[in-house]
């Protein structure tokens, strides 16, 4: 908040600096995590080099869950308090979440091709991620198809309904078919270190993207407000 809104919600120079530092740090950490994942961590015995995509894939998945939870929080608070900043949070998080889920699906496919010998299979976790992606793509479409405060309320309702649906979808797809997803069993310390660094690095990067997105949306809101005040 302090990084975003200075006097009267106007993004300030000081905020700019903090965000720039955050962006720079996350860039460095991403570079470090690339090194850890691609070079430092030992090769997995069964899967070989393909397993290394995991250091990108898992942080993305974690990030997307966090993003969708933020959509839910923003939606609840928007309906409750009516303050537009919550709506901005929800809508920025939804975009970041959809971006991450898309990446999760793509990196997952790239991994699945050599390991499962197919780009796609209706395995529960894949199915779950795909349904999740569809819900939040629908969320973005709804934002596009409706306007103003009414559109924000509609989106908030979908953000809430979608979130409550997540555990039920999860349950249903797991009852529906058997899972093939690799389970982490006894991880090498080198692998674990690489994983932790990359999760941290990616979360920092996502926070950076989210904040930038939020600042942009806030500025947009302010422009709209000024337009209203000017009368046309």
């Amino acid at each position: 908040m302090s990084a975003v809104s200075g006097k009267g919600g106007v993004p300030t120079r000081k905020g700019d600096n903090l965000v720039n530092i955050l962006g720079f740090v996350s860039f460095l950490l991403i570079a470090a995590s690339m090194y850890m994942g691609l070079v430092f961590a030992p090769e997995e015995a069964v899967q070989g080099p393909a397993q290394r995509i995991f250091y990108v894939h898992l942080p993305q998945a974690v990030g997307s869950y966090i993003a969708f939870f933020l959509v839910f929080l923003g939606s609840i608070f928007y309906l409750w308090k009516g303050d537009v900043k919550w709506d901005v949070l929800a809508r920025s998080s939804a975009e970041v979440g959809v971006l991450l889920t898309s990446l999760v699906l793509i990196t997952g496919s790239i991994w699945a091709k050599p390991i499962w010998n197919t780009w796609w299979t209706w395995e529960p976790r894949l199915t779950f991620t795909l349904v999740l992606w569809m819900i939040y793509v629908a969320y973005l479409m709804l934002r596009w198809a409706s306007e103003g405060k009414q559109g924000a309320r509609y989106a908030a309702v979908l953000g809430i309904v979608g979130f409550f649906d997540v555990p039920i979808i999860f349950l249903s797809v797991f009852l529906w078919s058997k899972g093939l997803h690799p389970r982490p069993a006894g991880m090498d310390p080198g692998m674990l270190a690489a994983l932790i660094v990359s999760i941290f690095a990616f979360l920092l990067l996502f926070t950076y993207i989210l904040i930038q997105r939020w600042r942009w949306e806030t500025s947009k809101e302010m422009v709209e407000e000024m337009k209203l005040k000017l009368g046309r």
Binding site: V131, A138, M141, A145, G151, Y154, L171
Partner: peptide
Amino acid sequence: LFAAIAINTRAREVMLPILLFPIIVPVIIA
């Protein structure tokens, strides 16, 4: 709920299935 939303959006005929189908995936599977 979604029909009440879709009716006030652009492209309302398309919006209802787009909003509804992903959410009711568990109902369809079950």
